[in-house]
Design a protein around this nucleic acid. Structure first.
Ligand SMILES: [Mn+2]
Ligand SMILES: [Mn+2]
Ligand SMILES: [Mn+2]
Ligand SMILES: [Mn+2]
Lengths: 218, 218
DNA sequence: AATAAAGTTTAGATTAGTCTAAAAATATTT
DNA sequence: AAATATTTTTAGACTAATCTAAACTTTATT
């Protein structure tokens, strides 16, 4: 049996290690889990005993094949529920993450596969993140962060890094969403703010925004 | 904050006390919670401290107004999720209870009210149990248990008490479901078995079945 | 009314997950 | 290379929920 807490740690390690590739250190996990380093050490030992992670003292932690499988499965559930909430229950993209954090732990193969079918096998969630299929496979999304976009080029908005309600509402307020076409007008070296052209308007966004918005060249 | 375990105890007390009316004793709770009497005593003290229950040593326990509110809310969620699983995700009535036991603990007002609307405000769940509305109100279902039905009378099947997969599959196998019309042919005093007439067939059911099937006179 | 049986509570342990404070290891700076 | 700072681990304690075994109340039977 795997506990809810173990699942959350595994998910955190997966995301922090860039989808399970790199070794993740204790403080980083403590930070995203909103807990103390000492608690992380204890849990990481347990995950290691249970064969979900590889861990050597002071050397950081990586996921095993099995740990990665668990992580991808939770992410699949999380993102499918997010689609459900937006498509069927009138949630906006800034409201879904919190509820999906809970729904992702419901354990039923049939439930999630039927939900997948009911939603007609979506491949992206409301934030532009890819949804793993039943076998855990998903396409890598080709994208660059707005901060690295080049002046004069035109892009399509394909995702966000920050899924906080505050950030997403800010984007709503500025008429930016998935699919929005954006041309880079100017990058201000002083504070790394960026001037963008949207369909009808021009706006200036801060470095914070520029670091959390993903684009694809068109 | 109310924990998942507290919610389950409150629900058990509600059901055992015939919807929160009668006082419930320790062993009864232990039995449905699959735990020991000593654990129940501890929890019941905690529920009492938290104002969800009234408890005096050796005198059993009842729910407070607030406890009853919590119970009804969980039951509302449980039954709405059961409807969702059957209506939208191709679950059969014997598969839903277990998953609903988990889904009922997801805490989001918006989620459950939108789900209710999405399902077009159903009033009964797949087992014939009434679904409380947003205000916690629901109709009392007029029903008698098959064991008390009278020979010669004709009834409609309106519910089940046991929602175990085994029992529900048994009913499926014998072509009995909600809405099925049943005439009582004979009650056997020796073992309390009952002979029923269905649409095309006659079958004999055991006392166990007779105690778990609810009917309404037509 | 006394005794036995059944039901309930208390006392003391256990496990998962967390914390603080101190010790140990690693990384960085001088 | 030594000193300092940062990171990580250990040790010991706490809470929620559980258990067993013993003590206590209530109920049933003689
Ligand atoms: Mn999310
Ligand atoms: Mn998402
Ligand atoms: Mn149920
Ligand atoms: Mn039901």
């Amino acid at each position: 049996m795997i506990t809810l807490t173990e699942e959350n740690y595994i998910k955190a390690i997966y995301h922090l290690g860039s989808n399970g590739e790199k070794s993740v250190n204790t403080n980083a996990i403590a930070s995203v889990m909103q807990t103390k380093a000492s608690s992380v050490t204890d849990m990481v030992k347990k995950l290691s005993e249970k064969k979900y992670a590889n861990y050597k003292k002071y050397q950081g932690v990586t996921l095993t094949e099995e740990g990665r499988y668990v992580a991808i499965n939770i992410i699949r559930k999380h993102r499918l529920w997010e689609v459900f909430l937006v498509e069927k229950l009138n949630f906006s993209w800034d409201e879904v993450h919190e509820v999906a954090e809970h729904l992702e732990h419901i354990k039923s193969e049939k439930l999630i596969n039927e939900l997948d079918a009911f939603l007609e096998f979506p491949t992206y969630d409301p934030h532009g993140d890819p949804i793993p299929n039943k076998e855990g496979k998903f396409k890598h999304v080709e994208k660059i962060v707005l901060a690295k976009a080049e002046v004069g080029d035109t892009y399509k908005c394909v995702g966000v890094d920050d899924t906080s309600s505050n950030f997403l509402k800010y984007l709503d307020g500025n008429k930016i969403g998935l699919g929005t076409i954006i041309t880079i007008k100017h990058k201000e070296p002083y504070d790394n703010s960026i001037k963008l052209a949207l369909e009808n308007t021009e706006i200036v966004v801060s470095q914070n925004v520029a670091k959390n918005l993903y684009l694809k060249k068109v």
